[in-house]
Design a protein around this nucleic acid. Structure first.
Lengths: 352, 352
DNA sequence: CTGAAAGCGCTAACAC
DNA sequence: GTGTTAGCGCTTTCAG
């Protein structure tokens, strides 16, 4: 049995050691300890060493909450994702988090599940934490009706604006961002895919994706490009999040609408991979009988057989840029631009 | 142009409204507002309503940092993942976050990239935030040598213990967990796969995965099962994280070691999908010439063609259990068990 | 059921 | 360089 622990233990609890204790141990005042930690250059190297030793010895871990309260900076950035179970978002979050950590910030994560109410609750929770910045993956739903009683307080956008919180929206490029943004045009993405497909001779093309705004924009672009060239578009939209488990059924729906379907543009690479499998199952040859295009250029696109032709959107780069936008803003740097279009590029491989 | 904003604006900044303001507006004292928010049942319904109205009107968002400092509870749980860019971890994080949010907690996320140093830094940052709990996905590296100067302060396990922080380790089931754990035995997983493969007549089997402890354990189990039955195992281990982009090369390595390879057990379903594609590319028929097994039972396993035979490990359920373990502990509930084996199950499909 | 007083552990002026 | 003085915005005793 372990001996009963009490306050007389040599090794105190992390969290129970305070700055005063360190100060005492180092023979300096509390402020000096604070300085030694936060502004080491403003302290003589002799005291610095003394303080560091005391910290080591006591196993002191500064209480960042107290620090945040006093300094009014939390060094926390919040991120709101529709869902983290989508590799493309996970990748963005990954680099976002890494870049933030490197800059001394940490990431508070929340999921909306494409739900406007959750969005509201989350933002409130984030604001309550006094996060230093917010990154939003995707459009704000802003479903909440304006409340006449309280003015415009209930619009999410308004709340964010009022809080004067640096926010970056990613993925969607909107005409009136809340603050900063990085992403690409979904309309343009759809248009590019459509143009590519039409140029390679496909006239009857399908679209599969989730039933949410980004898909809608891409579909619109696809339609425009195909119809301009005398083709026809059929679509299948499933409730979000629509994962690879829906690919087969979605292909069926498309085939039902157009048995002479020549191509499918998928909302992401995983969905496209599913279509590859679904075609194989049906004995449909890709790309000769059916062209398949994805979006994302995730590793699976290159690994697939046939290799997936896709639209590269660089989720990792987006995450990094988002983090840097925030960091620049928070450090008061002069910013070149508040809106960053990272563009999209067709990666031509074997499936279309 | 927007009119210059100043302190006289009707709509104040979120974050600038304090509890005192609400108290004044509601005609009660500050404490009463605090109670109305945190213990609504300890306040008369009349004052409750008054306070709620004032909160609405002022757009007041309580400062949780201040609250945390005073109450010594942060309502933040930290999670440390090797990488979030692995769907299987992302899924766990997803349900973890959801379950936590539902209980009024929030998730602080950090990645170690399978790196012991990052692990140390992260844990310190988490401790500094005074998080209420910690979930660790995977083994603690604990590479740091013990520092004779400061006793055992530098061992990560020791630090965690000293902090008396509730921690749950997931994925790996270890013999001496720091605190609580939920997961399955990797050795057993490997053994099950091996038994299944051997029972279906495969003698020369390969293993592909990343070069980290979990893979090692699975490989060991696989080897044991296969060799017991007179078979032979060859392995390819790539630097972590080994994604689907490595599948093809890993299959090549395996084939080099054993041109008569009859089966491949992959560290996860994505890797297995990659092998499916790699086989197709080479004209190897799955499952007749080559059996392929995955691990995870992610949606892609069912969607693949041929459908993937795999080991189900239920990452989402693990995340939920981890959250519940933490919540139970934090609410002082009597706990049935500190160690939770969720088991593994072979999902037999078409690829093996 | 409500209020007054006393901090939580730290940082930010301002002095010395 | 270093220390002193005030808080940051809230929750917690403890009285009434």
């Amino acid at each position: 049995m372990v001996q009963k622990m009490d306050t007389f233990d040599l090794v105190p609890l992390a969290g129970s050691t305070r700055m005063t204790d360190v100060a005492k141990a180092a023979g300096v005042s509390l402020v000096t300890v604070s300085r030694a930690i936060n502004h080491p250059d403003k302290v003589s190297s002799k005291t610095l060493i003394a303080v560091q030793q005391a910290i080591q010895q006591l196993g002191y871990v500064p209480n960042l909450m107290a620090g945040s309260l006093a300094s009014n900076r939390s060094f926390i950035i919040a991120a709101m994702v529709p869902t983290i179970s989508n590799l493309i978002f996970a990748e963005s979050i990954g680099t976002l988090s890494e870049t933030l950590i490197a800059a001394g910030y940490q990431l508070l994560l929340g999921q909306t599940n494409y739900n406007g109410n959750d969005e509201h609750r989350l933002v409130d929770a984030f604001l309550g934490r006094r996060v230093d910045g917010l990154v939003l993956m995707g459009k704000i739903q802003d479903t909440q009706p304006h409340d006449s009683e309280s003015g415009k307080l209930n619009s999410l956008t308004e709340r964010l604006l009022r809080a004067r919180l640096p926010v970056v929206q990613m993925w969607d490029l909107v005409s009136t961002p809340v603050d900063m943004q990085v992403g690409f045009s979904n309309l343009e993405a759809g248009r590019k895919a459509g143009t590519y497909l039409a140029d390679s001779g496909r006239r009857i093309v399908g679209f599969i994706g989730a039933d949410e705004s980004r898909s809608h924009a891409r579909l619109k672009g696809l339609k425009a490009a195909i119809e301009e060239r005398g083709g026809k578009v059929v679509a299948s939209l499933m409730p979000a999040p629509a994962g690879i488990e829906t690919s087969d059924a979605q292909l069926s729906k498309l085939l039902q609408q157009a048995s002479n379907l020549q191509a499918v543009f998928c909302n992401n690479d995983l969905l496209a991979t599913g279509v590859l499998f679904a075609c194989r199952k049906r004995g449909i040859d890709v790309p000769h009988q059916m062209a398949v295009m994805g979006l994302g250029d995730m590793p699976i696109a290159e690994a697939a057989c046939p290799r997936l032709t896709t639209l590269r959107v660089e989720p990792r780069r987006m995450g990094e840029i988002a983090a840097n936008l925030l960091m620049d803003r928070l450090s008061g740097k002069q910013m070149a631009s508040m809106s960053y279009d990272i563009g999209i590029e067709i990666i031509r491989r074997d499936s279309a």
